[in-house]
Design a protein around this nucleic acid. Sequence first.
DNA 1: CTAGGTGCAAAAGGTTTGCGGTTAA
DNA 2: TTAACCGCAAACCTTTTGCACCTAG
Lengths: 142, 142
Amino acid sequence: MKPRSHQQDEQHLTEQLGATGLRLTPQRQQVYDVLLHKRDHPTAEEVFIRAKKAMPEISHATVYNCLDALVKSGLARQVTLDRGATRYCPHMHEHGHFHCDACGTVFDVDLPTQAMPLPKGFEAKHFDVAIHGSCPDCAKKK
Amino acid sequence: MKPRSHQQDEQHLTEQLGATGLRLTPQRQQVYDVLLHKRDHPTAEEVFIRAKKAMPEISHATVYNCLDALVKSGLARQVTLDRGATRYCPHMHEHGHFHCDACGTVFDVDLPTQAMPLPKGFEAKHFDVAIHGSCPDCAKKK
DNA sequence: CTAGGTGCAAAAGGTTTGCGGTTAA
DNA sequence: TTAACCGCAAACCTTTTGCACCTAG
């Protein structure tokens, strides 16, 4: 995956929102920037905290609204790893998430989901794969 | 997978709880019965409602406690399909869940998780695979 | 006797909603 | 002008916790 330039990100954001009938607002731009800047699968609360640094008046409700707008526009994805808060990921191609039980880090992993055989008649639209275990660093330390 | 008889289920329950240092109580037995009886991946609330029919004095807290006990003893599994309530499944071999977006039904599906290639150094303990799409019936109706 | 289990009610996350006010097309 | 959006606060839903009582080992 080739990284997009900042300008391209900006344009992509406007286009994708527009195609969904949504406006580009400073808040949505800010929330998207937060997601792109550090791709560590933050929760809505973490996005809120980071966005608040650049935009102190932003509210929880707006962060949720913006994240929803990004998800609806195909610019971000919700990631559910456990019963805790939903995490967000701006990495849009089909992939899974590896969660290290020891250090808590979430890694993006490519997975051959097309190769997963389903019983006859089932039509899959989206695979949500969460893998729990130890990341290389933590596996070594054990 | 060959189904266990009622008596075998009972014995299995006692053994597995015992091995985890937990007691067999009427409530835990009841909750386990609910899970075994209709394997439709109920939420804790649904388990509560069903258990309450046979045991009207049972409480929410106890249902959560019992479900935890079953999970800890390896008799049931938590299933997370969306941001909604956690579902429970007494089907213990490694498998995934197919969620039909149209009718809401959850299907157990066998998956070759061993075949999923992970980057070097990662050690997987558990795969949590949720697939969203249309089940055969709903796919036909479209 | 004492550790574990139960039921109740209150609290604790995480997320959504209602509403008055603001802004962009 | 009007539909979309914002911020705030309250509501909501799911799950956890504190506590008094009970029961099995």
